[in-house]
Design a protein around this nucleic acid. Structure first.
Lengths: 141, 141
DNA sequence: GTATATGTGACCGTATTAGTTACATACTTG
DNA sequence: CAAGTATGTAACTAATACGGTCACATATAC
């Protein structure tokens, strides 16, 4: 797996704390400790998923497309990990073998339940929750 | 993620259907459609986790170390995906930034819940279940 | 002793990943 | 309109991970 989910969540949480002020990719990149281009690429994906909007030009930058309490970690996962399955199947087991012939179908059905459980849990946390947790953690020290 | 979990589950399900007869890595490899070495490496990991045993020499091969109804997909996951997290964090966000400073701790705590949900679901399916599902699927056609 | 089978180190080609450079496009401000 | 600023994206790179393969030492059965 890659760290795109973690970075994307970081970005959105950051935008939430900006409270309506557009954040440039450079500003966000400095919080994440990475390259502005990488941030822009992720922001582009998040925008396509309808989670953020961006304004070009002076004073521009990225904004949450809707309130943080209506963006869940599941939304982030779907936006950013679109076509990467958690537990990929292996391809083309031996169709001559009774096990090889059926294993992927059986496995897929069980893994689909696993994914559902995971998604339900992801959906329980919003970007607003994240921002609040971060702010609490900052007060605690 | 990689396909080790899928292949390992395939191996164990295959062993379950062998019903006590040792299976050589070559036999298993032919069911999975891959290389015996790859199977042996996975079997080695499964053996270390206490899920299988192996016998060298003529008539040897791999066996389940305990009944298939006492081996869950969670056991398999733990045995083969040991040190690969589903959602890795990104390293060293900016400690000068209020968000960067806390994001990984907050994220880790939520992701830990996600992982727990996933593991609970994985634990609900045993290798015996898998073998039975496979055999049912074979009858159905 | 011979045949068989595991266990593991070493290696290879490919794909993925994070990171970077470069630049066309779009918007704001004066 | 001109200058400055910021996004969006293509192209490239180095590092890593992955599946697959070969080779061979080790252990077991007959």
């Amino acid at each position: 797996m890659n760290t795109r989910f973690a970075v994307a969540t970081h970005i959105l949480t950051f935008l939430q704390t900006q409270d309506g002020r557009p954040a440039t990719s450079e500003l966000v990149a400095s919080s994440v400790s990475t390259n502005p281009t990488l941030i822009r690429r992720l922001l582009s994906q998040l925008a396509k998923a309808g989670l953020t909007t961006s304004q070009m030009g002076t004073g521009g930058g990225a904004l949450l497309a809707r309130p943080g309490n209506r963006i869940t970690l599941l939304d982030v996962h779907r936006a950013v990990d679109e076509d990467s399955t958690i537990f990929p199947l292996h391809q083309e087991p031996n169709p001559q073998c009774p096990v090889g012939r059926q294993i992927n179908g059986v496995l897929r059905s069980h893994l689909s339940d696993v994914e559902k459980a995971m998604e339900a849990e992801l959906a329980r946390t919003t970007i607003a929750d994240m921002a609040q947790d971060v702010s609490k953690a900052n007060l605690a020290r």
